[in-house]
């Protein structure tokens, strides 16, 4: 039970962090100028967004939960199981970021999730 709770925290907060960060970057607008000065300006602007800080906080929570989980659960279970990120990410992108996730993209994400689970499975 504790293992699945922490796994859920890892997957949901990790994906939530990415989604909040994506939202912060999208609100700031497409980056077109890649000079160091312009990029510094972009990140200064984004750091004023509450979404960016929420994203950062959720990413840290996911990392800490992963470390805690790895202290008792087997890597061979934890790492492949986090491939669920790809499915949860697709759901979050569709409903929270309002992206048009086509059938092809769902199929691709399922293939990637299965592939990552297989590559990460330790024997």
């Amino acid at each position: 039970m504790r293992t699945f709770l922490f796994l859920a925290i890892v997957v949901l907060s990790g994906t939530g962090g990415d989604i909040a960060m994506t939202h912060a970057m999208k609100r700031n607008g497409e980056v077109k100028n890649f000079s160091p000065r312009a990029l510094l300006g972009v990140f200064r602007q984004v750091s004023r967004s509450g979404w960016a800080w929420l994203g950062f906080g959720l990413m840290i929570l996911a990392f800490v939960a992963l470390l805690a989980l790895l202290s008792w659960a087997q890597v061979s279970f934890v790492v492949p199981a986090t491939a669920a990120n790809y499915i949860v990410g697709g759901v979050g992108a569709k409903f929270l970021l309002k992206e048009r996730v086509s059938r092809a993209r769902w199929a691709g994400m399922l293939l990637v999730a299965a592939g990552v689970a297989m590559v990460c499975a330790v024997r």
Binding site: A107, G108, M109, L110, L111, V112, A113, A114, G115, V116, A117, M118, V119, C120, A121
Partner: peptide, 8 residues
């Protein structure tokens, strides 16, 4: 798994 990822 790598083939699955490439296909995806």
């Amino acid at each position: 798994g790598a083939v699955f990822i490439f296909l995806g």
